[in-house]
Design a protein around this nucleic acid. Sequence first.
DNA 1: GCTATAATTCGCCACATGACGAATCAAAAC
DNA 2: GTTTTGATTCGTCATGTGGCGAATTATAGC
Lengths: 131, 131
Amino acid sequence: MTNQNKESCAVRATLRVTKALADLQRVRILMMLKRGELCVCQIVEVLALAPSTVSKHLSILSAAGLVDMRKNGRWARYRLPEGMAGAFIRPLLSWLGNTLKNDADIVRDVRNLKRVLNCDPGSLCRRQRKR
Amino acid sequence: MTNQNKESCAVRATLRVTKALADLQRVRILMMLKRGELCVCQIVEVLALAPSTVSKHLSILSAAGLVDMRKNGRWARYRLPEGMAGAFIRPLLSWLGNTLKNDADIVRDVRNLKRVLNCDPGSLCRRQRKR
DNA sequence: GCTATAATTCGCCACATGACGAATCAAAAC
DNA sequence: GTTTTGATTCGTCATGTGGCGAATTATAGC
């Protein structure tokens, strides 16, 4: 983003971020990612939504700069942005973390996530395909 | 809000806030209120929306705890929450302020607001009713 | 009391958004 | 090269959201 149009599109970039945060499932994803990098099938398993739905949520988070993605073979791994790239949205993520770290639903997600992390990702995908 | 259900509804309260922030007009209102207390007709004048629409936006912001309201006769004056009440959302408002303070649209709003503040509020309402 | 008036609520419409399954894409595995 | 497979895109549908004008509310002024 060049310096001269940074000002004129700030409000659009900002709304991309706030709109991305204005959905329960996307907030749940962000809170899970605080525990570290995850692949799509692991997020699908915890949220219990269709893979296509989760993929869409992740693309919205990505467009807002709230997550980073890197592909490793067929596996796409998502994580919270680090370093300079994440400086812009870090205050928001830490506010979110503070307000939700004791929330019952979020705590349950994290507990489920720990269980899911012990599974073979391949077997998760296989089960998800069966539905 | 009692202590025992604070955790269980944190995510709902949080989403009320993020959803409230996920709209251009409501963000514009918050940025205007950084300049101080405003009555509805002044906000209507700058946003150039129907009074009923603005009123709805203000009720959403109010439900999220992002603004305070006090009635003075027929006039309703809105402002950013102060003191303890605003502590929860202050980090968000300052993030918003930082990211948008140089945005072209927001700067224009503030300039228009200064002009509007020089008008008699009663005359603003009269003009708005004519539309 | 009656009228005027600032603001809100209501009813309606157009459009945006989130969900799914089917189809597609792209990298591995054979 | 064909098949398998993790992920994404597309098409569709139900629901949510933002906008307006009309009706309503509540207070001030006569």
